[in-house]
Design a binder for these strands. Structure first.
Length: 834
RNA sequence: GCUGACGUGGUGGAAUUGGUAGACACGCUGGUCUAAGAAGCCAGUGGAGUAAAAUCUGUGCGAGUUCGAGUCUCGCCGUCAGCACCA
């Protein structure tokens, strides 16, 4: 047999498959569908990297397996092409970003095609194509119409280097996700999407999807649901024009009798209302000014010393016991969460404790571990430091004490319920749910994004661009550079900005901000279903048929960004009656990063980047695909190894050499048949579980076995090729055609079935152990009883445990011993306890 | 700090319900082929021990449950990921 020439053969089949259109998804809605998806790439100038190869090949293995199982598989590929690199390139080279984008897309297609994946290229999408973003804009109008898109002046995250606003999801540890610059706060009028309105459903519907638990937990943490109570404290002061109240949010109403002061965030507006009564107002204002000037990072640094100022001359009244409480302003309380005010209970909260210690404030224990018998009054914090630090740390539930007859002795949980009832009845408190995450900041001050289809009219306010005027095209602009003033480059094009109001016809101005990069990817999975439709984002019928995505492959970096945003958009479209499922992705599989050979993240800087093109050139796509899938569990990362890929290349070449075997018309021997059926079962199950590395290990075991045979049956050979076909599509197709000339492609052949009866081996390895230690293994027919085994071992045990043994290996262990017990597990083992 | 996951040879990693630990592969060692090398192919490969066996020991550390623990329970130690003053 000639050496396997991967260059020639892979090219030949890639062309042949494209010609025959064997991977084209049928629009026949009577066929059972299977929708496999992988995140679409951003077409960067540097081309594809091994991360793409990992995700694309993984989805392809799954798709090929499902296709061979008779499904009409949808496996599309497209490009998420709006974004800063193209824009930065445009700024530098004074060229339109679309030129650069198009070049990169073409290059990506060329490179990805070399992987040999079964993507249906006729469905390719590009988020920057006006025919595509027409529908991105259409969805925005839906959001606007439904009251889910609104404009508001608010402090937002601003990246000084990218010169644009950012969503909270794009800020990592106070830094811009893209460029790592420190993010600043700016007060700006911006567009927001009301994702918080969907918070509850975004949490609850996670119960219905097959996702790894850690992603669900991450999303839940990000949303940060917190159930608690808002309580109003009256403010008492000498000279107050009108009655004022401070509302606090707490999840620990059961500790309210332990409240010894109230803290306001520096941003809390109520301070203005109380101004006239605060005797040290200048000191307070000075503190607020300092706090405002602090960067977010400084304020949220846990290690920093807590600071604050007492508001002299005024008090808050605890509505439960009418105690007069000091009021403080301190920047450890966030203005953006809850009510911007908290009740401080130093004995049961670590942060309050730290603050109280610093300023020598009082504390009181109101939750006891035991029965509520602690009966102390206020005491100095220094008195029992150990006890206090124990109680304040974490969520300390126990029994209520020091809280009045009405409540003492209740469990924390009971107290929360009964106290809330009282608060509601007397009108100073109500149940409240807060979420950590914020509405999605949706406007960007950059050029290369979808224009927001809104017109600002002095008379009519914000008016949507009529649907029939979509797409609202990105205008040509002389300068792509962001202005940095908070205006996008679009604002400089007077002819575009000045327009007429679609409602009243008066002169009006266009919105000049663009959408963030996340917009196009928030719904792309819907467009693949019907990519050429110009009447709707996709036809209702097709959406109903193909949604949801059955399995979605991608990277771990999208856990709380893309995955959350796209779930939100899908739900909005579900509510709008556009899509028929409320969760877009039934199953999610995430993979870890492949690191360079030196163990570091692949980067030009380290010179450790592996380029898929080079790997394919050297070994072929089949070897690359198989190697990446064999590296280890798919969800884990891994370290690239040029020696390990050699091993896989050997495996592929040994498959090629199977053609040297004589093909026999006889059946294979029993052992081979058993192993074959075991392999069919395991490979199928492992692919379903995305445990590709163990499927391949099994295929290697079978190959090792048949390599030792002189002859193999045609059926065995064909089946083997089919099992390997999802991983190594080219070489299997070539051999398949060599042994079955003019047959249809292996990739649309029917996946082999296994016979459960043939898997059962007649002879099994039966373990004999003494006191749990393995001492011998005997080969014996299956389904033997304990007596059969004893007989086979030539062992007799009488009723009092005396043993008569002739089995040579066991004599030294059992002779003269008294058997206390025999444990027998059918078809597995027997254990003598002596 | 909190939450979650995980600790198995020189390396990547296997191991239904607790029942032969280390499958498969890399690497390494020896052999074969070769003028030589590369690539193949054959054999070996957790550690200790032996001429070879036998045997002992072994899944981060320490205890426990069990006839039997990589797997279950508790306590440490370590690694990774997410969150990070959210009251």
């Amino acid at each position: 047999m000639k050496k396997y020439d991967h260059k020639k053969i892979e090219k030949k089949w890639q062309e042949e498959w494209e010609k025959q259109e064997i991977y084209k998804t049928s629009d026949d809605l009577t066929k059972k569908k299977f929708y496999t998806l992988v995140e679409f790439p951003y077409p960067s100038g540097t081309g594809v990297h091994v991360g793409h190869a990992k995700g694309h090949n993984a989805v392809d293995v799954y798709a090929r397996y499902k296709r061979m199982n008779g499904y009409n598989v949808l496996i599309p590929m497209g490009f998420d092409a709006f974004g800063l690199p193209a824009e930065n390139f445009a700024i530098k080279n004074k060229k339109h970003p679309s030129e650069f984008t198009q070049e990169n897309i073409n290059n990506f297609i060329k490179q990805i095609k070399k992987f040999g994946c079964s993507f249906d290229w006729s469905r390719t999408i590009d988020t920057t194509d006006p025919k595509y973003y027409k529908w991105t804009q259409w969805i925005f109008l839906k959001l606007f119409e439904m009251g889910l898109a609104y404009e508001k002046e608010a402090p937002i995250n601003w990246c000084p280097s990218c010169k644009t606003g950012l969503a909270n999801e794009e800020v990592i540890n106070g830094k811009c996700e893209r460029c790592d610059s420190n993010v600043e706060q700016r007060n700006m009028k911006q567009w927001f999407l009301k994702i918080t309105e969907y918070a509850e459903r975004l949490i609850k519907d996670l119960d219905d999807v097959n996702w790894p638990e850690y992603i669900k937990t991450s999303q839940k943490n990000w949303i940060g649901k917190s159930e608690g109570v808002e309580i109003e404290f009256n403010v008492s002061a000498e000279a107050l024009a009108k009655a004022e109240k401070i509302t606090v949010f707490t999840t620990r109403l059961d500790t309210i009798f332990g409240c010894t002061y109230v803290v306001l965030a520096p941003e809390n507006k109520i301070i203005d209302n109380l101004k006239s009564s605060i005797t040290n107002i200048s000191e307070v204002e000075k503190y607020i000014e300092i706090a405002k000037n602090k960067k977010d990072l400084e304020r949220t640094d846990l290690n920093k010393d807590k600071s604050g100022v007492k508001l002299e001359g005024i008090f808050a009244i605890n509505p439960f016991n009418n105690e007069k409480l000091e009021i403080w302003v301190a920047d450890y309380v966030l203005g953006s969460y809850g009510t911007g005010a908290v009740m401080a209970v130093p004995a049961h909260d670590e942060r309050d404790m730290e603050f109280a210690k610093k300023y020598n404030l009082k504390s009181k224990i109101v939750i006891s571990k035991k029965t509520g018998s602690i009966d102390s009054n206020y005491f100095e914090l220094s008195e029992d430091e150990k006890l206090l630090s124990e109680m304040s740390a974490g969520n300390y539930d126990g029994r209520v004490c020091n809280s009045g007859k009405e409540f003492n002795g209740l469990t924390s949980e009971q107290a929360r319920r009964i106290m809330l009832e009282k608060a509601e009845k007397e009108g100073f408190g109500k149940r409240k749910i807060n979420y950590k995450f914020r509405d999605w900041l949706f406007s960007r001050q950059r050029y290369w994004g979808e224009p927001i289809p809104i017109v600002h009219c002095e008379k009519c306010g914000n008016v949507p661009v009529p649907e029939n005027e979509l797409p609202l095209l990105l205008p040509e602009v002389e300068n792509y550079e962001p202005t940095g003033t908070g205006d996008s480059p679009l604002a400089a094009i007077d002819s575009w900005v000045n327009t007429t109001c679609p409602k009243c016809g008066c002169g009006a101005k266009r919105e000049t901000n663009t959408m963030p990069q996340w917009a196009g990817s928030s719904w792309y999975f819907l467009r693949y279903i019907d990519p050429k439709n110009d009447k709707a984002l996709a036809s209702q019928e097709k959406l109903k048929h193909f949604m949801p995505v059955d399995i979605y492959f991608g990277g771990a970096e999208h856990t709380t960004v893309h995955l959350l945003y796209s779930r939100f958009w899908n739900k909005v479209l579900y509510d709008a009656g556009v899509v028929s499922v409320s969760e877009p992705y039934k199953r999610r599989v995430q993979h870890g990063l492949i690191a360079g050979e030196d163990g570091r993240k692949m980067s030009k800087r380290w010179g450790n980047v592996i380029n898929p093109d080079d790997v394919i050139e050297q070994y072929g796509a089949d070897t690359m695909r198989t190697y990446i899938m064999f590296m280890g569990p798919y969800s884990e990362g891994g370290i690239w190894s040029t020696t390990a890929i050699n091993g896989v290349n050997r495996f592929i070449n040994r498959v090629w050499l199977l053609q040297d075997k004589e093909i026999s018309s006889d059946d294979d021997d029993k052992e081979t048949i058993t192993l074959l059926h075991k392999t069919i079962k395991k490979v199928g199950e492992d692919i379903e579980n995305v445990s590709y590395h163990t499927a391949l290990a099994q295929l290697m075991i079978l190959l090792n076995h048949i390599s030792s045979k002189e002859k193999i049956s045609k059926n065995l050979f064909k089946t083997y090729l089919q099992l390997l076909a999802p991983f190594a599509p080219h070489i299997t197709e070539e051999i398949w055609n060599n042994i079955n000339p003019n047959n249809q492609s292996i990739h649309i052949s029917t996946w082999p079935k296994y016979n459960e009866e043939l898997i059962q081996e007649e002879d099994i390895n039966f373990v004999v152990s003494i006191n749990g230690k393995m001492r011998d293994i005997i080969k014996i027919n299956k389904d033997k009883t304990q007596d059969d085994i004893l007989e086979a071992l030539q062992i007799k045990v009488d009723s009092v445990g005396n043993v008569d043994v002739h089995h040579t290996k066991l004599i030294s262990y059992l002779e003269g011993q008294n058997i206390k017990k025999i444990i027998f597990v059918k078809n597995k083992m027997i254990n003598f306890v002596i």
